[in-house]
Design a protein around this nucleic acid. Structure first.
Lengths: 215, 215
DNA sequence: CCGAGAACTGCACCGGCGGTACGGTTTTCT
DNA sequence: AGAAAACCGTACCGCCGGTGCAGTTCTCGG
């Protein structure tokens, strides 16, 4: 019973490393069980198929990442009472966290699986989209608080802004991977941050009219 | 000879539909040849392995999309001489084009393959990243022209802005797919547009100080 | 209209993969 | 001590990407 959970976790650890390094499809069960030192029967005792493995990975990932986000934005809330500052600080800390990862961030399970959705059944797909919706909802809540406190420079729907942050993260991950340059993700997280900042910060305080520059 | 090219194109057509619908890994050669009405030997006569099929798909995709982008931004250049306006108009037209596609945009081969890179060899991966770099370069050129003509509201590197546009497109595609909502892509393309607009447009002309709103 | 090369067909085969089936064994907790 | 959990061993299945090679049909330039 306790040993069962330990084995399950070990399978998930090995699988997660493989999926992040090579993708879900390229991480074979044979390879997982070889590294875990178990047999195929043992694997299928814990996960009745590969979809269940995917769900297990996603569930664990959601929990861990949720905890990280809680810590980061909790810290941001300690540093400022202002909702706009909280989001800006949180995004900066988040970007720094990603930049600080040795050898670059590991890549995101959700992003990885979004693009291999054809490998999975409905349950897994539903799980992926619900996680994406969670992210959008998280940022949306923050942005709605900001909207209540700040004038918007442009008439933009809070949901769109939230999705833009999530998109910047997903797009940053995918581009980091495509270009082999881990710095793109934190860079684009900061771009999203800057976007929010510009949308809400009283622009007149910072903008310099063209004529003034020419002079 | 001519017939050979026709078959090759038919294979690519069928494969492309499959890849966009189900992903590259899930599109089997058996299934392609069944639909094309040829044998396995026939397939491998045209493509010596699946990587070459991927390269064929990417090459065709790059050509077609390049043509579309040329048309769209050519039209934008007709509509305005101003580099900023050209980019803004081009992005709007691009977003409208994506929104107008029946049943939503088909998804992007490059984005799809970026996340299945473990399935491919170095050549294909190099091709994917070179296409992404093309996109970044394209937007970067446009943005550098804008930078030469407009004051920047925030000190942001043109490369970062270019990558942000590409990220918005990739992220938009991936989120559209995850959520099953094709409207996210055009929406996020317009968000990227709005970002550029805010970065360059003389802010003081539009921004309303908070006190003025309260009054 | 003929010949050469392009464009295939047909068939047999390989190893890796996800997955099934099922009986037997060890480990763990109560 | 006994029941349930946690495996092991083995044999098997169909799909998949891919190979090899001999034979056939089509197409087009000369």
């Amino acid at each position: 019973m306790r040993k069962g959970n330990a084995t399950r976790e070990r399978i998930l650890d090995i699988a997660e490393a493989g999926v992040l390094a090579k993708g879900f499809g390229a991480t074979s069960i044979d390879e997982i069980i070889a590294e875990a030192g178990i047999t195929k029967s043992g694997f299928f005792y814990h996960f009745h198929d590969k979809n269940e493995l995917a769900r297990g990975l996603l569930a664990r990932h959601r929990g861990r990442l949720g905890q990280l986000v809680d810590e980061i934005f909790g810290r941001a809330a300690e540093l400022s009472d202002d909702p706009l500052q909280q989001l800006l600080i949180g995004l900066t800390l988040f970007a720094e966290h990603m930049a600080a990862m040795p050898g670059g961030h590991p890549g995101c399970l959700v992003a990885t699986m979004s693009y291999q959705d054809q490998l999975f059944n409905r349950e897994v797909r539903a799980m992926v989209s619900s996680i994406v919706e969670d992210w959008n909802g998280f940022f949306r809540t923050m942005i709605e608080k900001i909207v209540a406190a700040y004038p918007l420079r442009e008439p933009v729907d809070p949901g769109r802004i939230a999705r833009n942050i999530t998109c910047a993260i997903d797009g940053g991950i995918i581009m980091s991977k495509s270009l082999g340059d881990p710095s793109v993700l934190p860079e684009q997280m900061l771009m999203a941050r800057n976007y929010v900042k510009m949308l809400f910060q009283p622009a007149a305080l910072h903008a310099v009219p063209r004529e003034a520059l020419a002079a």
